[in-house]
């Protein structure tokens, strides 16, 4: 009987400790399960530079490249989210968000530009960007690289199978647009 009481008290203590831990540790609450009557709007900046995030034209967040933030008090309805480069004020994105339900929403500010490479060299070329091989391009073709982040890019071209660089360029992407590179012999 004494042993049984001890066992019972240990079990009860264990249950109490588990309940206490579950309630007290904030990490136990899943971030992907918000309260059903709230809206969580998470913004990620992947555009290459620091931006201000505007919600219906009003600045709400300032995010460095790679940073994430939560919009304060988003509401149900149609809204315009936009992002401007902190340094230059250039707008990198503007989108309409139609929020009809409570829940969790994500918005990613991506690289806003494109680089278009045209090969008139007369042979298949292998292209590297900032030292990383990105692919090949046949003669008399144009290939596009999308979602280019703001920043500087060094592109090099080699005849496929050869290590010798036959053309190189540095492209400074500082806004939203299309940046061409024509490779000629």
């Amino acid at each position: 009987m004494t042993v049984s009481k001890k066992s019972m008290s240990r079990i009860l203590a264990g249950i109490a400790a588990f309940s206490l831990i579950s309630v007290c540790i904030p990490g136990c609450k899943s971030p992907s399960s918000p309260e059903p009557d709230t809206i969580t709007f998470i913004v990620t900046n992947d555009c290459g530079t620091a931006v201000h995030v505007l919600w219906n034209g009003v600045q709400q967040l300032s995010l460095d490249h790679g940073a994430q933030g939560v919009l304060p008090n988003p509401t149900i309805g149609t809204h315009i989210i936009s992002a401007n480069v902190q340094e230059s004020g250039v707008q990198v994105v503007s989108a309409t968000m139609d929020i009809q339900n409570f829940g969790q929403y994500y918005f990613k500010i991506e690289g806003p530009s494109t680089i278009r490479v045209t090969n008139t060299y007369g042979a298949i070329l292998s292209i590297t960007m900032n030292g990383t091989y990105i692919g090949d391009i046949g003669d008399n073709l144009t290939h596009t690289l999308r979602k280019i982040r703001i920043g500087d890019y060094v592109l090099e071209a080699r005849v496929k199978g050869d290590e010798t660089v036959v053309a190189t360029v540095t492209i400074k992407v500082d806004g939203v647009g299309e940046y061409p590179w024509v490779i000629a012999r």
Binding site: I134, G135, D136, I137, G138, L141, H143, T144, L145, K160
Partner: peptide
């Protein structure tokens, strides 16, 4: 597998 005529696909 490296394409040379499809948008830098590798």
């Amino acid at each position: 597998l490296v394409y040379y005529d499809w948008e830098f696909y590798v």
